[in-house]
């Protein structure tokens, strides 16, 4: 590992840790606190929910162990977090077990993600998830 890489990794770890602490402690859905949290630019401009809307509130719920609450604010996040973990795991064990990585990076798998994200975006605007 080069020095640059170590610095970048440390920086990333610090930002993630800071985020975890902030979102664990403060509830973005609390009206008196919500003004300190950034709003989704897509929602501010169009009035439509994007696939990532509600992630901050959902993060707070996940960090506090309230899965049902997270599901309520952004169900996609609950799918995305384990999926991202799976991708990282597959990448880490790629050399010895390439099968998982091959499946996850198959074009069909990637296009499925695109379809799910877009379908989720349309559905939540139609039925107000």
């Amino acid at each position: 590992m080069s020095t640059k890489r170590i610095v970048l990794t440390a920086l990333a770890a610090f930002v993630v840790l800071l985020g975890v602490v902030v979102y664990f402690t403060f509830d973005p859905s609390n009206p008196s606190l919500s003004k300190y949290f950034p709003k989704c630019p897509f929602y501010s401009l169009t009035g439509l929910k994007c696939p990532g809307c509600g992630t901050q509130r959902a993060l707070h719920e996940i960090l506090n162990g309230n899965i049902a609450g997270a599901l309520h604010y952004n169900a996609l996040l609950l799918v995305a977090v384990p999926l991202i973990g799976l991708y990282w795991l597959a990448d880490a064990i790629k050399k010895r077990h390439p099968a998982l990585d091959n499946v996850l990076n198959h074009p069909a798998a990637i296009i499925t993600i695109v379809v799910v994200v877009i379908a989720w975006c349309i559905a939540r605007n139609l039925w107000g998830f």
Partner: peptide, 30 residues
Amino acid sequence: TNLVWSIIATVLCCSIPGIVGIVFAFLTKK
């Protein structure tokens, strides 16, 4: 493919370019 970063960007940062990133991940593999 930058797939994981695209997914993270979709959920955390700004969805629209994030989805575009996933589409490019698909095209890369294709």
